[in-house]
């Protein structure tokens, strides 16, 4: 089996009192096994809907999706035997301590008690939770609770892990610890489908990425492939001396704190850099970041939230 998840013409329409909302429209995606696959997009882009269909929590409207070759709608029990998920905004049961949360999740899934204990101890150590093992989760910070949830599924024997914004609310150090654990999961040959708002996280962890907006896949590929497909693959930040009118012939210009951000093709980018230096302006030149790509493709920053409430996932 070479693919962990395959979606073909996948669509999902939510019905509500105000009418219908298309959360996914004809999505085709292939997610290979043994990798982290990143899914990025703003609120309402369709990420969570995609993950929930794959995790067998939500029915699709049309098209198909399979996980490890099994259809999510007709071979559900076979899918469920091989997956684990951390849903968006999920929280641990407040009356358990950290050890119990992970250990009981594993035993309820069917893991033998001795193996569950071993796995729990290992993941507690790996995610820096060993010192908090006896603490009630209700006494933990929001970040630590989230880490405990991630620890829970990482400790499982599932082959495909659906992590829906797993690091939201974590501090940078905690995020790195979760990243380390996700990388370990990949070393074990598992597949992780990761949705995130953090573009640096998507880029740092994912071997392939899909950029979703309005229920459609706008870009898909490795981070390098995605960069190559962008119309203006270089970014320059120019401060001082040069005005907007002088910059516009070189590419797309937007205002940033202390200067201008210019997206440009390679030749104009070099030309503009030389011009700026010759006139004594401060300039930095480099390849576009994932955030820049998002801005170019979608036309809005990833944290811009103008999605109507009924379309929110």
């Amino acid at each position: 089996m070479s693919n962990a998840v395959e979606a073909r013409a996948l669509s999902k329409t939510y019905r509500h009192s105000g009418g219908t909302t298309d959360a996914l429209s004809g999505v085709d995606l292939t997610i290979p096994t043994g990798r982290v696959y990143g899914m990025i997009g703003r609120n309402g882009a369709g990420k969570t809907t995609f993950v929930r269909i794959g995790a067998t929590q939500l029915a699709l409207t049309s098209g198909s999706m399979s996980v490890l070759g099994y259809d999510v709608m007709t071979e559900t029990s076979k899918v469920r035997a091989r997956i684990a998920a951390v849903p968006q905004e999920s929280r641990p049961l407040y009356f358990l301590n950290v050890f119990e949360l992970i250990y009981l999740y594993l035993t309820i899934r069917g893991t033998e008690a001795r193996d569950a204990r071993k796995r729990t101890e290992a993941v507690l150590a790996e995610l820096g939770l060993a010192d908090s093992r006896k603490r009630l989760v209700s006494h933990l910070s929001g970040g630590m609770r989230r880490r405990a949830m991630v620890a829970m599924v990482l400790a499982s024997d599932a082959d495909v892990l659906f992590l829906d914004e797993p690091t939201t609310g974590l501090d940078p150090i905690a995020r790195r610890e979760v990243w380390t654990a996700i990388r370990r999961a990949i070393r074990d040959g598992r597949t992780v489908l990761l949705t995130t708002h953090y573009l640096d996280e998507a880029e740092a962890l994912s071997s392939r990425l899909a950029l979703l907006d309005g229920g459609r896949v706008l870009l898909e590929g490795t981070p390098t492939e995605i960069r190559e497909r962008v119309r203006q693959p270089f970014r320059l930040v120019v401060s001082g001396v040069l005005g907007r009118a002088e910059l516009e012939p070189f590419g797309s210009v937007s205002t940033v704190e202390g200067g201008y951000l210019v997206f440009a093709k390679e030749a104009p980018a070099r030309e503009l850099a030389q011009l700026a230096l010759s006139k004594g302006a401060r300039v930095s030149l480099g390849p576009v970041t994932l955030e820049d790509i998002f801005l170019q493709v979608v036309g809005k920053a990833i944290d811009a939230d103008d999605v109507p409430a009924e379309a929110a996932e």
Binding site: S77, R80, I83, A84, A85, S90, R91, P92, I108, S156
Partner: peptide
């Protein structure tokens, strides 16, 4: 509470545990 607030039911749905097992448990 487990379904709507904590999303614990979604965690269980995405696992080998079947609905009757969850309910009886």
């Amino acid at each position: 509470h487990y379904r709507t607030d904590l999303k614990f039911q979604d965690v269980i749905v995405a696992s080998p545990v079947e609905a009757p097992v969850y309910v009886v448990g």
